[in-house]
Amino acid sequence: MIIKEASLIPFSLKLNSTFKNSKSNFSNRNGLILKLVDESGNSAYGECSPLEGFSKESLQDAEKELHDFCKDVINKSNENFFNLSYSTSVNFCIEQAFHSLLLQHNFELKSYYQQSKKIKVNAVIGLTNIEEAINLISQKINLGYDTIKLKVGRENPYDDFLLIEKVREIFGNEIKIRLDANQKWNCDEAIEYLLNLEQFNIEYIEEPSSSFCSNLKTADSTNIQVALDESLTDFQTAQEFITDSSINFFVLKPMMFGFEKTLKLIELTESINKFVIISSSFESAIGKSGLVFLAAQTKHNYAHGLDTSEYFVNDNCEDFYKPNNSFINFDINKYPPKFIL
């Protein structure tokens, strides 16, 4: 397979409203789409959209790397498309596009992956007031969702408590509640708050504390499962935490690791009976399609964080993986989708 064309398409997507968590606010997503065309005329796409406040590289840095790649790759074969040394969002972009080309060339390769899966997704409720949060949860439940992730870490922790109490009071134990504190609390605060929340049957809480050691101590001090997200700063660190810690849930934003290394981390967790949750960092429909592929490779039935379609005023192309009744249907024979930009 020889690459004959490589080009970049910038995009800027506006969110319907500003999304708030305990660390940052953002109202739009900017990024780049890489388009590769091989000698047979097959087209494939990858997305690069580093998330400010999380990714180490800026979009400007990533754009320079991708421009260099586009110049270097023309008329090259596929030997060096994996194990790349670019920044992680660029690696994800190139690997997603190249992987999509490979699947179009080598139909036998598809048999290596999960053929089909109904991927369960959770709804996400940002740091809003109790009345609005309850209204949003009710809408999601009416659409078939039974796993709700609540952003917590309000200035007054009692407001978090009141919201969770109200959710259980209104919706009962039929729904699963996840929490995400985005490292808002120190260790002592996290333990104190979570001991008060144990009564509400929380599935897990993401990153309650400000360091890995604090999160580990928190996990050992409460009956609520702790999940890691921001603590997973690079591939090697993630490997070590998965292998050596008592943590069971690992929330991966593939844009932070690259496409291939996310696959490797999924394989590692599966081998030791732990769980990767694939989480969107508000990618466009193109980046999201890669996340759906990755989520389909997990063997568990926990919900993934892929319910982002409705957040955008307009996407850059058709979203082939919108949830239906809280599930995304994945079929390897329909991957990659036929995007039109």
Rank of each mutant, 00 (worst) to 15 (best):
I286R: 04
I286A: 06
I286L: 12
I286E: 08
G287K: 03
G287A: 01
G287Y: 04
G287R: 01
K288D: 11
K288F: 06
K288Y: 01
K288M: 11
S289M: 06
S289R: 05
S289C: 08
S289P: 09
S289A: 08
L291C: 09
L291P: 10
V292P: 04
V292M: 07
F293Y: 02
F293S: 01
F293N: 08
L294V: 08
A295Q: 05
A295C: 05
A296K: 04
Q297A: 07
Q297S: 07
T298K: 12
T298I: 00
T298D: 09
T298H: 05
K299D: 12
K299E: 11
K299M: 11
H300N: 10
N301R: 12
N301S: 14
N301Q: 14
N301W: 09
N301M: 01
Y302I: 05
Y302N: 03
Y302W: 10
Y302H: 12
Y302T: 07
A303N: 03
A303H: 00
A303T: 09
H304R: 09
G305K: 02
G305I: 08
G305L: 10
L306F: 12
L306M: 06
L306T: 06
D307R: 06
D307I: 07
D307A: 06
T308C: 12
T308Q: 13
S309G: 08
S309L: 08
S309M: 11
S309T: 15
E310W: 13
Y311A: 15
Y311H: 15
V313F: 14
V313W: 04
V313Q: 10
V313G: 05
V313Y: 05
N314P: 04
N314T: 15
D315T: 10
D315H: 13
D315I: 00
D315V: 12
D315E: 02
N316C: 15
N316W: 13
C317I: 11
C317E: 09
C317V: 11
C317N: 12
E318K: 15
E318C: 11
E318I: 15
E318L: 15
F320Y: 08
F320E: 03
F320D: 06
F320M: 09
F320K: 09
F320H: 09
Y321L: 02
Y321E: 10
Y321Q: 00
K322Y: 01
K322W: 03
K322L: 14
P323H: 04
P323T: 05
N324F: 13
N324D: 14
N325L: 13
N325Y: 11
N325F: 12
S326F: 02
S326T: 00
S326I: 06
F327W: 07
F327C: 11
F327P: 02
F327L: 14
I328R: 02
I328C: 06
I328W: 04
I328L: 01
N329V: 00
N329Y: 02
N329C: 00
F330H: 03
F330T: 04
F330Q: 03
F330E: 03
D331V: 02
I332E: 05
I332F: 07
I332K: 00
I332P: 03
N333T: 10
N333I: 04
K334R: 07
Y335R: 11
Y335H: 04
P336D: 02
P337K: 07
P337N: 06
P337R: 01
P337E: 05
